[in-house]
Design a protein around this nucleic acid. Structure first.
Length: 661
RNA sequence: GCCGGGUUAGCUCAGGGGCAGAGCAACCGCCUUGUAAGCGGUAGGUCGUGGGUUCAAUUCCCACACCCGGCUCCA
């Protein structure tokens, strides 16, 4: 190279020589005009920068295009700036705060003058202003400056000043990441004479590169997520690289909406939340209850075969118990209020663990009994704050598939390993195959137990994950005060993540309850307690399943597995005999009388997502056959009844084993 | 708990200071049907609850309950 040129290395390892002073855009141009058109930013030596930044000699450079994750991130962040400019136009005197890109979109938080809030009409007007800004082809012009200069620039924007001050005092953290980089420098991006925003960048070169966006919803949000801080007004939006990508996203949202478990629960007559019952409390209708029962039966079956012992415990307990467990100290806000009785104060239980500790403690325990695995489908009540309730996913009365395992320190690692096996095998049965693991470690601010035990437990959890050879993320300081844990997220059929199972170590309750066992050394030792929920809550898991399958439960779970339809009333008798026969085989079968046309009855069955519709007419009566119309499959005529029954047994085979309990 | 929005027939939703509306579902009748909506009729409502304003409130105002979208929370 010489002074007039520079060399850069591309992601494929090739080196390109460009005139000195060339920018990312020049590079893209030199590679191809299509790339140049798609380029919106550059990755230079691992740092995202504007496409207009001159490249340095020897740099590693990748062009960021709009249709990549990084590219969409940039254009979403840029769209957030456009939103801010539009809002400041629409509400003169508004204060703007932060506006990051998020999954599928962006948001921006504002404090509006006179405590105003956004209305739907405002969203339309703001969208119009945004379109005008996009059309105006405003450049994003970066400038770097000292904190003092920035403070002057944003003198009438207190939230921006607060962020700048946090940079200068080194207090900036992840929540500031979209606005400023962590290195103490301050940069701004100016679109027009009057609109400039604090930002680390990078941004698209001009607002004309944006435009495939939609403002989605308004919401309140606390400044810095602090409940005691001011309530800001947030606008959420989504933005994409093309019209078609935006449309696809909107379609995906509509699809997700159709799977909403609350909608399906009503449509399918599974359960309801009568308001007279109170918030967050559900009643299960027969069709929902049968699915739930099958889930629970399966869970019991697996636990029975997994070395667990079943226990039961009451729904309320004397306050003394929760004094001992510490719940009244640590968890009182989450508990239903007490009932004053003539012999003391009673609380509905928010957890089952104290009860299980009492069972352990009831008599002297030997190391030979460990690990002792207690299991209960235990119904608990938690006073969730009103605004947090959400269908079955956040509810006030629910049933945990709760087990508590008492073991020695030395057994911990093996026990956790086999627990992971157990959990994953059950989740797979329910149709989940995509898992993510999170290890939460000690929060030094609030935790009980010695360094030694925390290390040992955390190592045991880590080891179990390693033995499974699975990837996991570590959430530092995210553990409960009583011990580290593994949380398992599953991905559902349309890619959404749900946190279900959890495996938690507990050093606190054994201490509080004074749990002990006699070791092989004939002296007393304190057991480790493991909390393990697999479904998490039966209700929540049911809700997730419902969304996962979009209501089309696999045959073994379906409330109605087979519907028999007579073509005309002359075939009713045959239909009834089939119903009887299939019921005798253990299947859930019903029929719809021929007082509506066949097409209509089939349609109803399909809408109810019945896995198999059997249509029977003259030919079938004569030949002892059925016409099989499977959900999502092709109709097959003239199937021998015995053959269909065999097929149905096969279809539900692994699961019917639980019928033998 | 906080910020918005909402609650009208079983469901989905329209309406709006003066007799309460549609589609689907339900019920009744006709049709006797071979693989996703046959035809006709009937019934269905304290417009979430309580208070207020008004000659008059389902409609406007206030409170409460419940729901929805977020925030916070989920030991």
């Amino acid at each position: 190279m010489n002074a007039a040129t520079l060399d850069v290395t591309l992601p494929d390892g090739s080196v390109r020589t460009l005139p000195a002073g060339s920018t990312g855009l020049d590079l893209a141009q030199s590679i191809g005009s299509r790339l140049a058109k798609a380029a919106i930013a550059a990755m230079v030596n691992g740092q995202e920068v504007d496409i207009s930044v001159p490249l340095s000699n020897g740099a590693q450079v990748a062009i960021i295009t709009a249709d990549s994750d990084a590219g969409r991130h940039v254009l979403r962040h840029s769209t957030a700036h456009v939103l801010a400019q539009a809002v400041l136009q629409h509400f003169p005197g508004a204060k703007f705060t932060i506006g990051p890109a998020i999954e599928d979109g962006f948001y921006y938080d504002f404090e509006l003058p006179d405590n105003k809030t956004f209305s739907d009409n405002d969203l339309e007007a703001i969208t119009e202003r945004m379109r005008a800004i996009v059309k105006a082809d405003q450049p994003f012009v970066r400038a770097e400056m000292s904190a003092a200069e920035a403070l002057e620039l944003f003198a009438d924007q207190p939230y921006k000043c607060e962020i700048i001050e946090r940079v200068t005092t080194g207090a900036a953290d992840g929540s500031d990441a979209s606005e400023v980089s962590g290195d103490g420098s301050v940069s701004v991006y100016r679109n027009t004479e009057s609109f400039v925003d604090l930002c680390r960048g990078p941004h698209v070169p001009s607002t004309a590169r944006l435009g495939h966006f939609a403002l989605m919803k308004v919401a309140g949000a606390y400044w810095r997520g602090n409940e005691k801080g001011p309530m800001l007004q947030r606008i959420y939006g989504t933005a994409w690289e093309s019209k078609s990508a935006l449309d696809e996203h909107i379609t995906r949202l509509a699809e997700a909406e159709k799977r909403d478990h609350r909608r399906l629960a009503t449509e399918m007559d599974l359960l309801s939340f009568p308001s007279e019952l109170g918030g967050g409390l559900a009643v299960w209708h027969p069709k929902g209850a049968i699915v739930r029962k099958i889930m629970e039966d399966y869970s019991r079956y697996r636990h029975q075969h997994g070395g667990y012992q079943f226990v039961f415990s009451p729904h309320i307990a004397n306050a003394q118990l929760f004094e001992t467990s510490g719940h009244l100290h640590f968890y009182k806000d989450g508990m239903y209020p007490p009932m004053e009785m003539d012999n003391g104060t009673y609380y509905p239980k928010p957890m089952n663990c104290p009860m299980h500790c009492l069972i352990f403690r009831d008599r002297q325990r030997s190391y030979r009994e460990l690990p002792l695995r207690l299991f209960e489908l235990g119904t608990v009540y938690r006073y969730e704050r009103a605004g947090t309730l959400h269908g079955l996913l956040r509810i006030r009365g629910f049933t945990q598939d709760d087990s508590h395992i008492f073991c020695t320190e030395d057994q911990m690692a093996d026990e956790i390993t086999s627990l992971l096996d157990f959990v994953l095998s059950v989740l797979r049965q329910f149709g989940f195959n995509d898992f993510e693991f999170k290890l939460s470690t000690r929060d030094l601010e609030k935790s009980v137990g010695s360094d030694e035990i925390w290390d040992k437990a955390t190592t045991a959890l880590r080891e179990a994950l390693n033995r499974h050879g699975v990837e996991y993320s570590v959430k530092e300081g995210d553990a409960a005060f009583y011990g580290p844990k593994i949380d398992i997220d599953v991905r559902d059929a349309i890619g959404r993540k749900w946190q279900l199972s959890t495996i938690q170590c507990d050093f606190n309750l054994p201490e509080r309850f004074g749990l002990e066992y006699i070791g092989s050394d004939n002296s007393r030792h304190r057991p480790i307690m493991l909390h393990r929920a697999l479904f998490g809550s039966v209700e929540r898991f049911f809700g997730v399943l419902l969304e996962h399958y979009g209501g089309a439960f696999p045959a073994w779970l379906s409330p109605v597995q087979v519907r028999v339809l007579a073509v005309t009333s002359q075939h009713e008798e045959y239909a009834q005999s089939l119903v009887k026969r299939l019921r005798a085989e253990g299947f859930r079968v019903d029929t719809a009388e021929a007082d509506e046309q066949l097409g209509k009855r089939i349609r109803s069955a399909k809408l109810e997502r019945v896995p198999f519709v059997l249509v029977v007419g003259d030919d079938d009566v004569k030949n002892n056959t059925v016409g099989v119309n499977p959900r999502g499959g092709e109709v097959i005529r003239d199937v021998q009844v015995d053959a269909f029954i065999a097929q149905l047994h096969e279809e539900t085979r692994t699961e019917t084993a639980i019928g033998n309990l």
